[in-house]
Design a protein around this nucleic acid. Sequence first.
DNA 1: TAAATCCTGTCA
DNA 2: TGACAGGATTTA
Length: 264
Amino acid sequence: MVRDLRARITGRVIEDVEIYWDRTVGYPSPDRLVSEIQGRPIRGITRRGKFALFDMDEGATFAVHRGMTGSLLLRNRGEADDRFVRARLGLDADVELRLDDARKFGRLYWRKRGETWVPPWEKLGPEPLSDEFQSETFAHRLSKRKAAIKTVLLNQQIVAGLGNIYADESLFLAGIHPTRMAGTLLPAEIERLRTSVQSVLSKAIGGRGTTFSTYRDIDGEPGSNQHALMVFQRQPGPCDRCGGRITRIVVGGRGTHFCIDCQR
DNA sequence: TAAATCCTGTCA
DNA sequence: TGACAGGATTTA
């Protein structure tokens, strides 16, 4: 998503902004966010975990988190309506960026340089596809944790960017049972998990995302990675690796999918 | 560390 | 109608 945005709207000016659901703005207030970003050019777009970060002038950042069901759509101005638009940024060149988000968990943020408020993207763990995601630091973060490894993988402070689908898929690829206590993983298992996280994410990005239900790219098109999933929503199987039974359980309140025969 | 919470749509 | 949902924080 960020690569597409970067290619298409870097340099665009945010001309007008509308917030249709006030709680879509996580910080500061809807009024302040609107008045601050109006008229400013987008200098660059980067990503940290699940946050898209828009670099604005004077070191300021406009950030978007899509939540569970949010899509960031780039449309021509006034083009066919999307069903659940919570915010709209009108840009120059007659385009607009829409946050289309049925469940209203998506959030927008505005952060100026030097502010005391610490934005959520600055509290994240290492980027899983960067070389700051090392086996040793990963092992250190897992040690002493008594929670299920599945739950720990969803903790954005341990490693950034994994959600429910990719946590399950990574554990499957690593052959690790989701309810294993994180602190009991052996060094070889931790290294296997680390590389599994990286290949699962790389493959998913290569497939332009996983459209299990609502994910869409900025043109509203689905990804293709849903066809490559090994365990997520594939109960009762059979498992592609061993022919075993894929099971769904609940771990830390989240649906969790794994092969009962080849994940230990 | 689990459950409740914020939300609304979809599907069995 | 109830279960469940790609997230994350707060409360018990």
